[in-house]
């Protein structure tokens, strides 16, 4: 850093300009949203970008709006803003809670909704919860706009389907019609990243359970969740869903736990998450508890 050949700093002030620059430069410039993850990579010497495209001055990417009951989060909305926004706290409390559990206030002031998805770090909190609430990412380029579900967006370790001319500009979250929880299980320090993260949401009779931090991408098994489709979910169903998630998954091993340990915890934490969202009937709007949260 700071030496050798001059690095280019591109700071467009409108979305149109940003999209044009992105399309023009493609992979030759590195997009900077919050920049926290990029900075870690730069500090470790893993990357040394020659051109930086900062989205910091693009006002269109900073909105938090509700349109026809759908939440629209601009890509440059910080984690801290999701955590604090009164509308999100009221209507999508699980998002406030989950984003509020990320790292420290410093990181949450910096990290953005778009950035955390585009980084696709397996141990981040937001991807699993956004997947559970059925969010979609909006990808724009001069070619047009497309919307992709979170499990279509994230393809692998630090890998997404975002094309070289595209920017992730917005995240859209459907109206929350039922309870949702995010459980962040830390095996070590209270400040550690998750060993196992489970997000579960029930909306209009549908159950979505997503496990994060255990594999390359958030793990979601719709066929297993279908068991909890109608009526109250009893303990046996919750236990069964947990057991099947644990069995089907191929967890990774890292400093936070071995694969075998994670498998054990997945069974428990999925069961607990399902119990929490399953307790109140079909989940049609009742109980907006987004709480749950921690082990």
């Amino acid at each position: 850093m700071g030496g050798g050949t001059a690095v280019e700093w591109l700071a467009p002030s409108s979305l149109e300009e940003a999209l044009a620059l992105r399309a023009e430069r493609g992979g030759d410039t590195t997009v900077v949203a919050g920049g926290s993850f990029l900075a870690i990579l730069m500090n470790q010497g893993f990357v040394a970008p020659t051109s930086l495209l900062s989205l910091g001055k693009v006002q269109e990417l900073r909105g938090i709006d509700v349109v026809d009951g759908e939440l629209r989060l601009g890509a440059m909305v910080s984690h801290r803003a999701v955590e604090r926004d009164p509308v999100i706290r009221r209507d999508w409390p699980v998002l406030s809670r989950a984003f509020g559990l990320v790292a420290s206030p410093r990181v949450r002031n910096q990290a953005t909704v778009g950035g955390v998805l585009a980084d696709a770090d397996y141990a981040s909190d937001p991807p699993a919860v956004l997947c559970a609430v059925n969010a979609r990412a909006v990808l724009r380029s001069p070619r047009g706009v497309r919307q992709v579900a979170i499990d279509e967006l994230i393809l692998g370790f630090y890998e997404t389907c975002i094309a070289e001319d595209e920017l992730l500009t917005e995240v859209r979250v459907p109206a929350a019609l039922g309870p949702a929880v995010y459980r962040k299980f830390r095996s070590r320090s209270s400040e550690d990243r998750p060993c196992v993260a489970v997000a579960a949401a029930r909306s209009a009779g549908r159950l979505r359970v997503v496990v994060g931090a255990c594999a390359e991408v958030p793990q979601h098994y719709p066929d297993v969740c279908a068991e909890g489709a109608d009526g109250p979910i009893d303990d046996a169903v919750a236990r069964e869903i947990g057991a099947v998630y644990a069995k089907r998954m191929a967890p990774l091993s890292d400093s936070r736990g071995s694969a075998e340990y994670r498998r054990r915890v997945v069974a428990v934490e999925v069961r607990r998450a399902v119990e929490m969202v399953g307790a109140d009937g079909a989940g049609n709007g009742a109980g907006r508890e987004g709480a749950g949260g921690e082990e």
């Binding site: 070590r188 320090s189 209270s190 400040e191 550690d192 990243r193 890292d254 400093s255």
Partner: peptide, 16 residues
């Protein structure tokens, strides 16, 4: 050493 940083090597924090 496979955890030579303060994210993979945790130090006790106030919440601990």
């Amino acid at each position: 050493v496979t955890n030579a940083n303060l994210s993979d090597y945790n130090l006790p924090a106030i919440g601990d």
